[in-house]
Write a protein that binds this DNA or RNA. Structure first.
Lengths: 200, 200
DNA sequence: ACCTGAACACCGTTCAAGT
DNA sequence: ACCTGAACACCGTTCAAGT
């Protein structure tokens, strides 16, 4: 949507591009560390640009947030690709599930975005989400066929399950690995044959 | 802490008490419906008092939040008591787990508080939390002894598990019952004997 | 074309003045 | 004692003026 993304149209002046990159780096770092209540002015100052430049690149704080999430999704797509190449179907599933959580571990902004606690709109991330979903869907279907995941598990369950475990890491006073215990419990459920008589 | 709680000291003037009650009712209703971004002025207006009265009763928006959560915990303690009186150990556990989630279902403020997304401090709710925890601990221990819950499950796991499922209901555009599917998956894990070779 | 920062708007919180 | 609402502070966002 924004004229800054992609290569279409007149290319940006090189100083403008540098400014944009610096803004994204500063914002990603500050949001990751302190969550959404970092001030726009602080981000601009950290990137050594004026407030107006920040707002020309990103129409609102929300939009800046979305762009950071979109970038992080590129990492998730990579992760899903690597997981898909693992031969053992159970290990492939674990790799994408655990890897997702590990990528979120140091980034409260990303956690917040995924938990949906902000009024984050997802326009602009749809494409990345779809690419990620496609790969994870194949991994889950393979696991189900191989009998290592419960028979009624679908990709539709994946986001909720990941968010569920992620809620354990969200904004703890100090980072812990409590979430790995939670993960262990949830994985047990997924790797268990569904009890007979389970409703659809 | 506040001179308003408990019966200690000079009792409040009856109009003052009425005002406090109305404020709590208005705030609970508005927060439940629209989450944390309801304005303090709107709450005061809804309760038919001035903004100053709101701030004399609750030193900050945060404190108002905490008091609402404290009240809701009274409902949870009731729930845990009723669940404890159920003879079947598996049914008792399900009752408290599902009941907790159902109480949270219509109240985004409560969900937010429990997910820890606010900088909510828990002073003032400790007592209620302890009463609730005591009962749930007994229910879980009974379930483990009876062999209907996985052998290494403890009360320490309970908050994370409930929050995990709750993350599925948090601030969806429209309320759904997607979370019941998530619940089903998690319950499967809890009611499964822990696989041999599980690390502590 | 792109940049800057002063100015505006909104909302949490305070406090001087009322009864 | 308790109440009120105007005033203040803070931060997201805009825009007139610069280069």
């Amino acid at each position: 949507m924004s004229s800054h993304r992609g290569g279409e149209g007149t290319p940006m002046r090189s100083d403008a591009r540098r400014n944009r990159e610096r803004l994204l780096d500063s914002a990603a770092r500050l949001f990751a560390a302190r969550g959404r209540d970092v001030q726009m002015e602080e981000i601009a100052a950290d990137a050594n640009v004026g407030l107006g430049t920040l707002y020309r690149n990103f129409a609102s704080k929300q939009d800046l947030f979305v762009e950071i999430v979109r970038r992080r999704y590129l990492g998730l797509i990579d992760l899903a690709e690597r997981a898909e190449s693992i031969d053992d179907p159970a290990a492939a599933f674990r790799a994408v599930f655990v890897g997702y959580l590990e990528q979120a571990e140091c980034d409260s902004a990303f956690q917040l975005a995924l938990l949906g606690g902000s009024d984050l709109r997802w326009e602009g991330v749809e494409e990345q989400k779809a690419l990620f979903a496609e790969r994870v869907r194949r991994i889950i279907e393979r696991g189900v066929r191989a009998g290592v995941l419960r028979g009624d598990l679908t990709f539709g369950d994946f986001p909720a399950l990941v968010c569920g475990v992620m809620s354990t890491m969200y904004f703890k006073p100090s980072p812990t690995s409590d979430w790995r215990r939670h993960l262990d419990l949830v994985l047990t459920a997924l790797e268990t044959a569904v009890p007979q008589g389970a409703e659809r």
